[in-house]
Design a protein around this nucleic acid. Sequence first.
DNA 1: ATCCTGACCTGAC
DNA 2: GGTCAGGCCAGGA
Length: 103
Amino acid sequence: MEREDSFPQRVWQIVAAIPEGCVTTYGDVAKLAGSPRAARQVGGVLKRLPEGSTLPWHRVVNRHGQISLTGPDLQRQRQALLAEGVVVAGNGQIDMQRYRWNY
DNA sequence: ATCCTGACCTGAC
DNA sequence: GGTCAGGCCAGGA
């Protein structure tokens, strides 16, 4: 029995706790996960998410308040955010000062 | 055990 | 205000 949840599991927990209509950064998620410098790993976890997962991964963006994805994935995340009332520019830019979620 | 990779961050020019 | 290089952490081969 694992005494402590693994990082992916922690990331899932944290991302799942992000309120609807809000966004956060990979760095913040990593910080809450206990490893402030493991922001990259957060992205790696979200990338390997199972299809059936209801995890709101689209609420996680980079430090610049911009979607780090490209092409169809970028559009998908943008649509998901727009559906929640988050204003996202065509290039994936988001007004962090307005939607940033602080634990 | 080693080496490479990555949906990043920070500091410096 | 942008761009470049370095670093850090965890997973997978």
